[in-house]
Design a protein around this nucleic acid. Structure first.
Lengths: 238, 238
DNA sequence: TGGCCTTATTGATTTGAGTCAAAGACTGGT
DNA sequence: ACCAGTCTTTGACTCAAATCAATAAGGCCA
């Protein structure tokens, strides 16, 4: 049983769809489903900083082939909260008509496949292998979102930043022996919007972590996490 | 395709399992699966205020047959965040070995069925109808959790409480023509732990909403929401 | 019904993060 | 290599919610 979708290596429609689909093949019915999904899918190339062009009236599923995205929720009076980051191989569920309005925005140039959620589920609804993959993706997203909620509800600025860094290390860092090099594709503002803090507070907390010898920064995006266990400790992780 | 599990009417093991299963029946393979799941399931009766006795080392799935529960996440230094509330008919996914430790606690006497998640998925992995139901439950939970994250990250105390009340009205209130009567099974402390606020702040915000004529309270648990649209407006909903 | 214990409300004070403001450092384009 | 514009850092001050403290109300049991 395959639970993990794999990232795409190139931007062309064929590669993108193949990458998406190759994580799922294996059954006899797969060919027909591939055909239907192929027709249903919309290839989107989102350039850094712009929004995925999604129908705001229908729930969407988006497969992120490569690049990186943020999922932004907007409440009244223009306040924005980044609800999740997604990287190559992730599948994002974007609800329409919720309390807040959601938009998917690229942090780097991104190639993706978009599907209307209900039709996707219609097609895939009889194929366990797809459903399993979807289920795992959504459970992973749910568990991440809960951990995020703990941070937003009960942690101070430093714990939130530490938690964010540990989480990113896990997803996009190159770790070895307690150290980790991270190239963050998001700005300080994005980090703030994700952690419920301001850009100034993020900056101050970076300074403190630097002073404590837990991280080093190079330029705007490169971060060296010197001591992951200590950072996880500061993050309030169990 | 059935996406919704139904609540149990009585506490006995048979009724509980039947209620759980009747939301899912329909295929030929159902009988065998029912048998396997029956063997796998553990009936638990959790009394008000106590924790579900779950193996802390294995991911769990819990079907809440009746009653009400809170899912609590604990970070270091004993801080607790309520990550979700669940009512009759809900299926809860509880991860082990995450950043925070999770526990399911009953708000009222509750009857539930507990399953080890991996074995459950093993059994159910080939049956689309179960997977669909699971998928829908987890997507609903994910979308709720995201909306909660927006509140925790970007809303002030009053907006959070308004949002909470509107959400509860949706799930357990009896609504008619813009008004709604709610009997909250959770204490002010629970509300605070869910909204990332203190009990005092909750109390003050209730007072303000009362003063604004948006709610009336009777005793500790009864709340009358006088004007749902206005409340949703205060909640910052789009 | 009365008494006791728990939970909720209200008030005074403190504090951590937000806001406003200014200076410094990257990055991309020419 | 330089310049312009954007992003980041740091500092001074403000404010919303936390904390501390005391009173009031609600619910449960004898």
């Amino acid at each position: 049983m395959s639970n993990r979708l794999i990232p795409a290596q190139a931007a062309s429609r064929k590669y993108l769809f193949d990458a998406f689909f190759s994580g799922l093949a294996g059954t006899e019915a797969a060919h027909e489903i591939a055909f239907k999904l192929g027709k249903l899918s919309q290839t989107i190339n989102i350039e850094r900083g712009s929004m995925a062009p999604l129908d705001p009236d229908k729930d969407a599923l988006v497969y992120v082939g490569n690049g990186a995205t943020k999922l932004i929720a907007s409440a009244l009076s223009g306040r924005e909260q980044i609800v999740a980051f997604h990287f190559a191989g992730d599948l994002v569920s974007i609800p329409a008509g919720a309390w807040h309005s959601y938009a998917l925005c690229a942090l780097a140039d991104t190639d993706a496949l978009a599907f209307p959620a209900d039709e996707f589920l219609e097609i895939v609804g009889s194929e366990p292998i797809f459903l399993c993959a979807l289920l795992h993706q959504s459970l992973t997203a749910l568990h991440r979102c809960r951990d995020k909620a703990v941070g937003l509800g009960r942690k101070n600025a430093q714990e939130r930043l530490a938690s964010f860094l540990v989480g990113m290390a896990d997803r996009i860092g190159s770790t070895k022996t307690g150290e980790c090099v991270l190239d963050l594709p998001m700005s300080r503002r994005d980090i703030g919007d994700s952690l419920g803090l301001t850009i100034e507070t993020i900056s101050r907390q970076f300074s403190e972590l630097r002073l404590a010898g837990l991280v080093q920064t190079t330029g705007r995006s490169r971060v060296l996490l010197c001591d992951l266990p200590a950072l996880a400790q500061r993050a309030g992780h169990i």
